[in-house]
Nucleic acid binder design. Structure first.
Lengths: 219, 219
DNA sequence: TCAAAAGTGTTTCTTTTACACCCATGC
DNA sequence: GCATGGGTGTAAAAGAAACACTTTTGA
């Protein structure tokens, strides 16, 4: 999800400020909920970005000139900022992006067609993605991103999207089942073209357990 | 490396503050150098700790009463703090820990016998260790922790220490060699009891390359 | 000369990868 | 009926784990 700043050709990641009396992880969760309306989402901190000059004073001037930001706030916005990067996984079709006072566009954008981004946001995206790909080797994935009942092809497509590569249908299934976090139902997903695939659910207890401990086997 | 705070029975991790005009990663590097005198050390950020109440006001009062901290600084020290955790790997025999104005002891302490620690420092240590163990699967390790020329048993002991488990001597050697980042020299380390092991050096170029890309094979 | 540690290679087991065949569904 | 995708199993390759024997060294 990216925002296009008013009067700028560059986009930015959605973010927010940490309040004085708010845990940082909690702030991330709050911002996520403000943006998406969703709770209980996979959300994972991956890095603090703390280089100097993480501030766009040219853009700030424009915003003040255009009355987007009040002039008396200029000094505050001129301060140095650090960013804590979090990855959240959201089923994008459930969330309709909405703009805020600083932005005139807010959209879901594919990683393959990223527009120009402000500051180091491109780097933040890259590190977040890499981090997620690596963590995929240690923890399960899919809750909140899939319907409660889902098919093996749906789960596989999710992994393929994040890993950015095709996975063998049969080997993927064998591996996923070996983790023991899936329950196969007696139902099938009918209505699609072609043969109806079985439906699965996550075994909630084992899923949570694995989430804590990480897969014993790697990807 | 732990510090024992004056007038307290609890120990703490060495740390410092980030200056206003200093990149966060750079601050970590500075603090490390101040503590150890060493440069070019493996240093890796693993997490920001940003919960509330990461401050010990009881201890602060004591410090002011004992004139360790000037009373006019009390308000400043009462602020909320966040901590960015970094792991550095240091050959401890090369560094003699020294105290500072807030501490009366500074020692290298084994992970197996950790004393009581302030605040969430125990959690920070645990997360740092886990993080390091996981990263070991993606990157090489040993530079700066071993002499320029080192033996396979020395390298293995290093891995065993960090992973907290015994590794098979022969399988370890085969795996390490397969990464192609080691050069075996014609010399051997003589003088020890028992058969003299061969000396190795890291292939600097391949080491750096692997550091960026991660091992293609996992641990 | 003996215990301890290092050098080297092989066998076994497990995991991963590649691949083949049959079944169901919509057009 | 046929193209497409799903269900299942098996053979081959690669990798990890277990293990045996020989060599070297200081005590």
């Amino acid at each position: 999800m990216l925002l296009k700043m008013k009067n700028m050709d560059q986009w930015s990641l959605p973010g927010g400020f940490v309040k004085k009396e708010e845990a940082v992880d909690q702030a991330a969760r709050r911002v996520l909920q403000e943006r998406t309306g969703l709770k209980d989402i996979y959300l994972d901190q991956f890095r603090l970005f703390g280089d100097l000059d993480r501030n766009d004073s040219k853009h700030l001037k424009k915003l003040i000139r255009d009355n987007v930001i009040a002039p008396e706030l200029e000094d505050w916005f001129r301060q140095r900022f650090v960013t804590v990067g979090y990855v959240a996984l959201v089923e994008f079709s459930r969330v309709i992006p909405s703009t805020d006072e600083l932005s005139d566009k807010c959209e879901w954008i594919s990683l393959e067609s990223l527009p120009p981004l402000i500051l180091d946001h491109k780097k933040i995206i890259n590190e977040g993605l890499t981090n997620l790909q690596k963590k995929l080797r240690f923890r399960p994935l899919g809750k909140n991103l899939l319907p409660e009942k889902f098919t093996m092809p749906e789960l596989r497509t999710l992994y393929e999207t994040i890993l950015g590569e095709q996975l063998d249908r049969r080997n993927f299934q064998r591996k996923m089942l070996s983790f023991g976090i899936l329950n196969r139902l007696d139902e099938q997903r009918t209505g699609g073209a072609h043969r109806a695939p079985y439906l699965y659910t996550f075994d909630q207890e084992k899923y949570a357990q694995t989430m804590d401990q990480g897969f014993n086997t790697l990807w």
